[in-house]
Structures are given as structure tokens and as C-alpha cells.
């Protein structure tokens, strides 16, 4: 089977699995919901459980799906950007910046909020964007702008922000539990405004990324090669960095820090859909959404009635699967 067929088959399977995943997510929960109720809600627009199904389970499932898609797309962009399969959405400090912001907002007792963003989320978004911008400006000021200096500056700034976060948490033991809950990532507080907010970030970003996917193919060959093939490298780089940062910062500020998705999903998808970013961007987003949808379903049902942090599930299930995929592809 050639790559194109395999890719199309993969997309088709993903869409089916995702629909099944949504159905399961709507059906599953502490309140027993017969399948008939979901069908009656879909086809007749009414059900005795409509409030639970729509406002609790659907919002949560959608938010998990959109977060997964955003993180995976952000990871796919950054892996191409840095020509490094180890890059992930948080490599430039988006996550460390967000945690610092969230903990600061607890420390300062802020209560301002926007539709879709709590006080913590708002501070997380702001400080995440701020930190990545700082990293970008610092590394640009160096004489020779390289991806390496950007990467290293990002790692260093991330470490600094993490240190500050730990220090704040250390001083305020009472805020610790609340902060840790937020840091581990959860969709328990999902609501429609969060879904809308994330959709507002994801849809335009995905459209632009797909529009520039050929340029990313050229970039991933190396800057000089990209230029000699006619790619306007500098402007394309700026756009992609902006997209990846927005996606990472918005996902973190609505859902907390969920690791692993943005690193593993693009990597795994590349083994199936091939390296071409025109295919990779689309299938990464779809696979990332599916992966987090299922992970969240497991997170809230495995130890019901208590909930696991979704980040624990993504790593626990994703890592073995990923190692299996890697070994299989190495053998063939």
C-alpha cells in the first residue's frame, strides 16, 4: 500500500473511531444513560438527559478533542520548524510560562476573568505568550539567528520559570493542592465558552498551517535548501512560530499542562502518513483529538467516582503504544 492510500485509510479509520469515541463519552458517566437517549437527542432533539449529555459530557468531550488537536498540531509544526522530532509544544517555555502565571494568580488572589478563561487561565495565557515572546526576542538579538539558539533559550527560560513556580508553591503550601490540580491538566471544569475559545484559536491556525504546509516541507530540508528552492524562509518561520505558540498557550490555559500528546502524536502519525506536512498536519490534528478524547474518557472512568489526571493517562497509555510503533517501524 503506498503512503497516500495508507494516509487516506488512516484518516477514514480515525474519523470512525472518533465518532465512536464521542458516542461512548456521551454515554458514560456516573448517571446511567441508555444509548436510546443519545439517539433520541441526536435525531429528535430531545431527551430526559439532555442537560447532562449536552452541557456536561459533550462540552467535556469536545474540549478534550480540541485540546488534543491543538497540542498535536502545535507539536507537528514545531518538530518541522526545528527539524527535530524531539520538539514538542512546550519546548519554547509555553507550559512553564503558563504554570508560573497560574500560580501567580493564586498568589495574588486575582479574580478577573474572561468568557472561557478563569483568572488562572487568563494569567496562564498572558504569561505563556509573554515568556515565549521574550525567548524569541532574546535569541533574535544574537548575531546569528539559529533555531538552536532559540531552542536553548527556550529551555533555559522554561527552567527559570519552573524554578519561580516551585518557589511560589513552596512558600504557599495552602495553594499547593489547587495549583497541582491545575498543573496536571483536567477537563473537569469544561464549559461551552472554553470550547468556543479554543475553537477560535484552532480553526484559523489549522487553516494557515495547511495553507503553508508545502513551505514547511521545504523548511524541514534546511534553510539554505528551502531558500534555493524558492521558499521565503524568514516570513514563513515567523508565521509558524506564531501559530505553534498560540495553539500551545491557548490549550494550556483552558486545560492545564497535558504532556506527551504534542510530542508523540506527530511522531507516531509520521510513521503512518509519511513525512509530507500536507498530510502530517491534518492527520496529527485528527489523531491528537482522538487520543485525548479517549484519554479523558479513561481518566474519568478508570477509578470512578474519583478522577485521574488526564496527563497520567496520556503517558501511561501513549508511551507503550509509541514504543511498540517505533520498534515495528524499525523492523520493516
Amino acid at each position: 500500500m503506498n503512503v497516500r492510500c495508507r494516509h487516506l485509510f488512516f484518516i477514514a479509520v480515525l474519523i470512525c473511531l472518533t465518532l465512536a469515541g464521542f458516542f461512548l463519552s456521551l454515554k458514560t458517566g456516573p448517571v446511567k444513560t441508555p444509548s436510546g437517549e443519545i439517539f433520541s437527542l441526536i435525531f429528535h432533539g430531545r431527551s430526559d438527559f439532555s442537560d447532562i449529555i449536552l452541557n456536561l459530557r459533550l462540552t467535556r468531550a469536545l474540549l478534550a478533542y480540541l485540546t488534543g488537536a491543538s497540542l498535536a498540531l502545535s507539536g507537528a509544526i514545531l518538530q518541522g520548524y526545528f527539524r527535530n522530532p524531539m520538539a514538542d509544544p512546550f519546548v519554547l517555555g509555553a507550559s512553564s510560562g503558563a504554570s508560573l502565571g497560574a500560580v501567580l494568580s493564586l498568589e495574588l488572589g486575582l479574580s478577573a476573568s474572561l468568557p472561557g478563561l478563569s483568572a488562572q487561565g487568563l494569567m496562564a495565557l498572558a504569561s505563556s505568550l509573554l515568556l515565549v515572546s521574550l525567548v524569541y526576542m532574546i535569541s533574535r538579538r544574537r548575531r546569528f539567528e539559529t533555531q538552536e539558539s532559540l531552542l536553548l533559550t527556550g529551555i533555559a527560560a522554561g527552567a527559570l520559570a519552573s524554578a519561580l513556580t516551585s518557589f511560589l508553591l513552596f512558600r504557599r503550601a495552602d495553594a499547593y493542592e489547587q495549583a497541582v490540580f491545575w498543573l496536571l491538566g483536567s477537563f473537569a471544569l469544561a464549559d461551552w465558552s472554553q470550547v468556543k475559545l479554543l475553537l477560535l484559536a484552532l480553526l484559523p491556525a489549522a487553516a494557515v498551517a495547511l495553507f503553508l504546509a508545502r513551505e514547511m516541507n521545504l523548511l524541514s530540508l534546511g534553510d539554505e535548501t528551502a531558500r534555493s528552492l524558492g521558499c521565503p524562509v524568514n516570513s514563513v518561520r515567523k508565521i509558524f512560530l506564531f501559530l505553534a505558540t498560540m495553539l500551545a498557550a491557548f490549550s494550556v490555559s483552558v486545560a492545564g499542562i497535558i504532556g506527551f500528546v504534542g510530542l508523540i502524536v506527530p511522531h507516531a502519525v509520521r510513521l503512518i502518513s509519511g513525512a509530507d506536512h500536507r498530510r502530517l498536519f491534518l492527520s496529527s490534528a485528527l489523531a491528537g483529538g482522538f487520543f485525548l478524547l479517549i484519554s479523558d474518557l479513561i481518566a474519568r472512568t478508570a477509578l470512578s467516582p474519583s478522577e485521574l489526571p488526564v496527563g497520567v493517562v496520556t503517558a501511561a497509555f501513549g508511551a507503550p503504544f509509541f514504543i511498540y510503533l517505533l520498534n515495528r517501524s524499525r523492523r520493516s
Binding site: 527539524r83 522530532p85 530540508l221 535548501t225 534555493s228 509520521r270 509519511g274 513525512a275 509530507d276
Partner: peptide
């Protein structure tokens, strides 16, 4: 170019 080593597996 003299050196060309793409990271990703293009055909």
C-alpha cells in the same frame, strides 16, 4: 549542496 541530510523520511 555539499551536505544534505533531511531529518524526516522523505521519499
Amino acid at each position: 549542496p555539499q551536505v544534505f541530510q533531511p531529518v524526516f523520511d522523505y521519499s
